Amino acid sequence: MELWDLLDRNRNKIDKTHERGKPLPEGYYHLLVYIIVQNDKGEILLSKRHPNKVFGNLWECTGGSALAGEDSLQAALREVKEEVGLDLASIDGKIIFQETRENPPAHFDYWLFQANAAIEDLTFQNDEVIDAKWVTREAFEKMVKKKKWSQRQ
């Protein structure tokens, strides 16, 4: 069972948790993080979703929900470690964009990290990720246009 902290509209924790998979109570939000990992060549790390997942076989940047007790940075570091086995240094990350959405009711934090890793050195979470690759910004933009990109936001 995965638990999330419930937040108010202003991103304040309200000392209540919520079980993943159940509808959020009216007026409450949870925190989602998306992590863009960029290497020294300016390439972006993408992972390919497991075919049994929603948006299966599509490429994406790593992301997910913050667990109860985690802040945004902790969630970002954990998600990347869990999904692709990459240990990021907190000092190498920065939030580049934040937004709040009503459907689903969530606060979104988009992180940018600088890191270099060989694809063959990554380890994938069995039920989440089946592949990874580095792509140029131009290749990434083409993937989005051709809908070969996960829209799970």
Results as ranks from 00 to 15, higher is better:
residue 45 L to D: 02
residue 145 K to S: 14
residue 78 R to M: 07
residue 20 R to T: 00
residue 140 F to S: 08
residue 16 K to G: 04
residue 148 K to L: 14
residue 45 L to Y: 03
residue 152 R to V: 00
residue 65 S to C: 11
residue 116 N to M: 12
residue 146 K to L: 14
residue 28 Y to N: 15
residue 98 Q to H: 04
residue 72 S to Q: 08
residue 55 F to V: 02
residue 52 N to L: 10
residue 96 I to Y: 01
residue 142 K to G: 05
residue 107 H to I: 03
residue 1 M to S: 10
residue 61 C to W: 10
residue 65 S to F: 11
residue 105 P to A: 13
residue 5 D to Q: 07
residue 145 K to V: 06
residue 12 N to I: 09
residue 91 I to D: 13
residue 61 C to H: 13
residue 140 F to N: 12
residue 12 N to A: 08
residue 138 E to T: 14
residue 7 L to Y: 15
residue 96 I to S: 06
residue 109 D to G: 01
residue 151 Q to H: 13
residue 70 E to C: 09
residue 141 E to W: 14
residue 102 E to R: 08
residue 31 L to F: 10
residue 146 K to C: 06
residue 44 I to M: 10
residue 108 F to C: 00
residue 150 S to H: 02
residue 152 R to I: 00
residue 40 D to M: 09
residue 95 I to N: 11
residue 83 E to L: 06
residue 132 A to I: 05
residue 8 D to Q: 01
residue 31 L to V: 03
residue 139 A to C: 10
residue 3 L to V: 01
residue 52 N to W: 00
residue 149 W to Q: 07
residue 94 K to I: 07
residue 30 H to N: 11
residue 116 N to F: 07
residue 22 K to G: 01
residue 49 R to M: 02
residue 132 A to L: 00
residue 44 I to H: 06
residue 110 Y to I: 11
residue 6 L to S: 05
residue 136 T to S: 15
residue 86 L to Y: 08
residue 67 L to G: 09
residue 73 L to F: 04
residue 55 F to H: 15
residue 53 K to G: 02
residue 117 A to Y: 06
residue 148 K to C: 08
residue 21 G to S: 07
residue 121 D to W: 03
residue 147 K to W: 05
residue 150 S to T: 06
residue 28 Y to C: 14
residue 133 K to Y: 07
residue 62 T to R: 04
residue 6 L to M: 03
residue 53 K to W: 11
residue 127 D to P: 03
residue 100 T to E: 07
residue 137 R to G: 12
residue 67 L to Y: 13
residue 106 A to R: 15
residue 115 A to I: 07
residue 109 D to Y: 11
residue 88 L to K: 06
residue 68 A to L: 09
residue 46 L to T: 04
residue 82 E to T: 05
residue 143 M to N: 10
residue 75 A to F: 07
residue 32 L to I: 12
residue 12 N to M: 09
residue 25 P to F: 00
residue 128 E to Q: 13
residue 64 G to I: 13
residue 104 P to R: 08
residue 51 P to W: 01
residue 1 M to Q: 10
residue 68 A to F: 09
residue 18 H to D: 06
residue 119 I to S: 00
residue 14 I to G: 01
residue 34 Y to K: 14
residue 79 E to R: 10
residue 26 E to A: 10
residue 4 W to Y: 13
residue 145 K to C: 07
residue 28 Y to A: 10
